[in-house]
């Protein structure tokens, strides 16, 4: 794993990718910092800059997708995939090596822009606790989004598709509140939503295994669970659609950190999503053998 991590880091810096990314990241953060903190005198860097809505759109819909898009696509193109898959390393080591390299680049960027809160601390009054919890939040949230990007990059061979899908996912998590507000509620809406999700999963299973009975089992199991939920938790089911989407909202958990609270359940949630995405990526990589 260390070998892959080292190589990936080197590759980021021998191509222009890392430099372009870091320049863009620092530059955009600087613009937000001078506009918000210096111009208007807001002193909470984490709350006013790092979790500024437009700034988050930049990071999660532009910067991170750019960083993750080439992770696996490049290996496919250069045929170096063969080397990794026939070497005595497990898919976990491959995925983790790549993920950590990407995460490291992100952390380097974050480290550089940490001069901004230091500037505030030197010249004024920095709310230390809020800044720390905000940093913990942004690191966990970004790790999560990089893991999602890793998974998307592992699923597609085209970097362009990877970047678009990751960006759409980033926007979706950020706009989930807006989307939830305009969605209908009620039992029928929940049934329709669950139906679509179950069918989608069944289709994915079918495409992967080409066995109809597996999909049929998925549909039947999904239907039983849905109907069971309807009778067991009728109240929850009334707002099932919005409840599910809110639960899925990674960004909602992130907000707590910005408000200065490090909530254990949110930490666990973000780490779990990261781990699940990476685990699914290892399965995707391993399943390539069974084409």
């Amino acid at each position: 794993m260390i070998a892959i991590l080292k190589r990936e880091l080197k590759a980021y810096f021998t191509s222009m990718q890392a430099y372009i990314y870091l320049a863009l990241f620092v530059c955009v953060t600087g613009v937000f910092f001078s506009l918000i903190c210096i111009n208007y005198g807001y002193n909470d860097f984490a709350a006013n800059v790092l979790s500024n809505f437009y700034y988050m759109i930049f990071i999660y819909a532009i910067a991170i997708p750019i960083l993750t898009m080439r992770m696996f696509a490049e290996e496919k193109k250069q045929k170096t995939e063969t080397l990794l898959l026939t070497a005595p390393v497990s898919p976990w080591e491959i995925v983790l090596g790549k993920f950590l390299a990407c995460f490291a680049i992100f952390l380097i960027g974050l480290l550089i822009v940490s001069v901004f809160p230091v500037i505030i601390a030197v010249n004024g009054n920095l709310p230390i606790a809020n800044t720390i919890s905000g940093y913990v939040g942004i690191i966990l949230f970004s790790g999560c989004m990089i893991a999602v990007g890793t998974l998307i990059s592992g699923l597609t061979e085209e970097p362009v598709i990877a970047v678009i899908v990751s960006a759409v996912f980033g926007l979706f998590t950020l706009f989930i509140n807006v989307i939830v507000a305009i969605l209908p509620n009620g039992v029928i809406a929940t049934f329709v939503f669950f139906g679509i999700v179950i069918l989608g999963i069944a289709v994915l299973f079918y495409l992967d295994t080409k066995k109809l009975w597996i999909s049929a089992v998925v549909v039947i199991a999904g239907a039983v669970v849905t109907v069971g939920l309807y009778f067991w938790k009728t109240n929850w089911f009334q707002y099932g659609l919005t409840n599910s989407l809110n639960w899925l909202s990674i960004e909602k958990r992130f907000e707590e950190f910005i408000n200065g609270a490090i909530n254990l359940s949110s930490v666990v949630y973000l780490l779990s999503v990261t781990a699940i995405c990476l685990f699914v990526t290892t399965r995707v990589i391993a399943s390539r053998r069974w084409r």
Partner: peptide
């Protein structure tokens, strides 16, 4: 294993690449 198309990282030097493969092989 030498596959039909050698699995080479184009942007690495020969030595860097071979040392990477060595470390990859443990």
């Amino acid at each position: 294993y030498l596959p039909e198309q050698p699995p080479l990282y184009e942007k690495m030097t020969v030595r860097e690449y071979l040392e990477f493969v060595g470390e990859l092989k443990g």
